[in-house]
Amino acid sequence: MTTTPEGGFQALKEEQIQQYLHDSIVVPEELQANVLVTTVDKIYNWSRKASMWPLLFGLACCAIEMIATASARFDLARFGMEVMRPSPRQSDLMFVSGTVTKKMVPAIVRIYNQMAEPRYVVSMGACATGGGPFKEGYTVVSGIDKYIPVDIYVPGCPPTPEALIYGLMKVHEKVERQSIQQVPWYRKERSEFVPIPVLGPDIFDPRQVQLIREHTLGEGAAQAATDDGGGITLKPNLLTAEQKQQLREIKARYMAAKQPA
């Protein structure tokens, strides 16, 4: 390793401060296996990536930055993304741009289901990623990834247009790593239909009905019933030592992978 970085601030930033920054991406193992560089793949991926049509779909404040990204100053047209399609059937890319509320989730999941494969989801902003500043709120979903698979998370509140474009380039990278041989959408067992969550007394996922029953009707119910505030309070489920260990390992792996060799 050289000691003196060359090439100005950016190189310096990359070489010296690398470990403090967060812009290096670990290629997940399953994707690394996919880097199959055939000509077909190249053409296939190039054409897909160069004409990705986003869904015209704004949720909250982040949508304003999304519009700013699409307009003259930052110009998504440079990436072949200027055609924002209002119809999910015609679009490949969904920006979940803003706070996802429980009332909105069923609609979003339905839209997602309507999009044709290959489809990508960008979770734009803190809210869509993890609930953001409104995470504690009673009708806010803590991250759209609870309901639909997300390809890229762009943190920031709101992400500046540049940050969003950076995220889109990461999507491009992801697209480039896919191989026509392995992509799921030409196979028999096509991608799943995500069950649409239901608005009951509170939102619930049809897949979790049994789990919820255990808690509302089972043991925990009696203790929960003591609170008359309308909602129920469950004892916070602290992380077990095992889980903590697990987290630490994930984290360590992540850090190790980030560090330049």
């Binding site: 429980k102 609930g131 995470k135 709120g137 009673y138 806010v140 979903v141 803590s142 609870k146 009951g200 007394p201 509170d202 939102i203 619930f204 996922d205 979790q208 009905v209 789990l211 919820i212 029953r213 255990e214 808690h215 509302t216 009707l217 119910a221 009696a222 929960a224 019933a225 309308g230 909602g231 129920i232 309070t233 469950l234 916070p236 489920n237 602290l238 992380l239 889980q243």
Partner: peptide, 18 residues
């Protein structure tokens, strides 16, 4: 991690989703 279903939701006791 506070809630078994991992989501920001609570359900009234004795409510049966089925």
């Amino acid at each position: 991690d506070k809630l078994p279903w991992g989501k920001n939701a609570t359900y009234p006791p004795e409510w049966d989703p089925e």
